[in-house]
Write a protein that binds this DNA or RNA. Structure first.
Lengths: 242, 242
DNA sequence: GCCGATTTGTCCGTATGTATC
DNA sequence: CGATACATACGGACAAATCGG
């Protein structure tokens, strides 16, 4: 029951692009036409199109129209394009993933952890260390820090399933924004202990700070990926200049 | 003389956040207040705020307000957060960069190149291979492919300066969107030959397809970075669910 | 080169819904 | 419950870019 009109239109056009009903490099119907088709205002159409631009699906050109520039990607490797959990990614990539919890403790943020994570010193945190397996291979090592007051009642059992499910469905907390930084780091002894690294001596590392709908940062995560199963996609749009 | 009002407001609020005039974790003035302050409509304010949300500067909360969640990042390493050239990045990071052109040829896209780059087979291309130095260290190896018909008159001399300057200022072509994919790859002999890799055996690789304002893909680039000078930042916002 | 039709870009005012306090 | 705040949506106006005659 989506009452959000522009989101419905966004999804509808997106589907038409993905199925090829709108051809690659062809123009979409004009905004005016779409207004008639969907029976809505021009603003609403423009919001839907703006979302497609952000996804890298279409390109708008003043005075000309809107062009479909969507090209499908190989759905093979792991793609981090939005905020999603390992479980969600596994499902989207049609793979069977399992998770093993190798550490689960509570701790107070000392100066070092505070600096690294961005939590205030002294904050009570859950610390969870997990290994994610895909097709039997140990591919991802996750270090999670959760604010204990915002994510209460966390257990190793929950951590072995999906912490995000717990946060959203049990605690009814809404996850809103996430700042992520991607780097490549030298392998550590811990990585070597838990991951199948072939002969790589480094990993793709994603550190992220996640905020809830109160603007509170409740999670800091460092996610260490085996290089050949890592892929990060991004669509950049140049903003108008001053 | 920016006639674009919402961009002016966006920049103004952004500056107030960066300078600390709006404090971290504090609420911004309400949209209603900002409408009075800037003497514009609420729509315009909302566009400016939406841009700040996308930048990870603020977080909106229905019924409550808009919270400043901006935290400055260390300006040390290279940041790829938008479409910018090596030259632009160097300047923004206050470093002195130089560029050496190690290969410059024309070629027709064969089947292999066509598959890799996304150009149609048979397309006439410039191929440029360049090494970027920062503070005297060879850090980035770039493989660029440009469509010869869209970027005519390219020379090794231009490649040694800034190809993007040439494209925008000489050819007056507007660069609009760029799709980028970040991966980590094993080092090759070519990488070893040109880059100072310490004892890393892999690199951060960014492949990008860049489109002009006609929706034509005119460039394919593979950019290979030494791991310790690479950093990619991203702000993800969870979209409304269906 | 000019003009008019088309199309997207920007902006305004207003109304209604929904969440918070 | 009412006041405040953001979210969605509508309709209209004009500007800017493109294209064809």
């Amino acid at each position: 029951m989506p009452k959000i009109k522009y989101d419905h239109i966004y999804k509808d056009i997106k589907a038409k692009i993905e199925t090829g009903e709108y051809e690659f490099q062809a123009m979409l119907p004009s905004e005016h036409t779409l207004v008639s088709e969907y029976g809505c205002s021009r603003n609403t159409i423009r919001r839907a199109i703006a979302a497609l631009v952000k996804d890298g699906y279409v390109q708008t050109m003043q005075g000309k129209g809107v062009r479909n520039i969507f090209q499908p990607v190989e759905p093979n490797s792991f793609i981090l394009g939005s905020i999603e959990s390992f479980k969600e990614s596994s499902i989207r990539n049609h793979r069977k993933g399992t998770t093993r919890v190798v550490a689960f403790t509570q701790l107070h943020a000392d100066a070092k952890i505070a600096k690294k994570t961005g939590f205030a010193q002294g904050t009570l945190l859950y610390y969870v260390q997990r290994v994610h397996y895909l097709d039997g291979k140990a591919l991802i090592l996750n270090h999670n820090y959760f604010r204990q007051d915002l994510v209460p009642g966390l257990t190793p059992q929950i951590a072995a399933q999906s912490i995000y499910d717990y946060i959203e469905k049990e605690l009814h907390m809404t996850i809103v924004t996430s700042k992520r930084i991607m780097t490549v780091e030298k392998m550590t002894q811990i990585d070597e202990k838990y991951l199948d690294l072939n002969d790589y001596n480094c990993l793709a590392v994603v550190t992220s700070q996640t905020y809830n709908d109160q603007g509170e940062m409740f999670e800091y995560t460092q996610s260490r990926h085996r290089p050949d199963y890592f892929r990060f996609q991004d669509n950049a749009v140049r903003r108008p200049v001053s």
